[in-house]
Amino acid sequence: MKAIVYVTIKQSVLDPQGVAVQGALHSVGFQEVESLRIGKYIEIELNTDDRAEAEKRVAAMCEKLLANTVVEEYRFELEG
């Protein structure tokens, strides 16, 4: 089974990298960009077929290491 994890900066927290990239898009003519936030995309291969168990374990991975919940949020999808 494969897990796809997205780690993003909380809406309440400023993302200076996102602001800079948004400014760069504006300066090259993409005026329609209203806001932009940068996050992380993580692919994990798991050696299990037990969906419920995988869900629990991946959530634990996010809480313990993959996201810093002081400033980040996470969500994930399971495939296969």
Binding site: V13, L14, P16, Q17, A20, V70, V71
Partner: peptide, 17 residues
């Protein structure tokens, strides 16, 4: 120490990047 939870909060990327 912040990641370890021994101090509160966190350190983000500098505003200027």
């Amino acid at each position: 120490l912040t990641e370890a939870g021994l101090l509160p909060g966190t350190l983000r990327r500098n505003m200027s990047l």
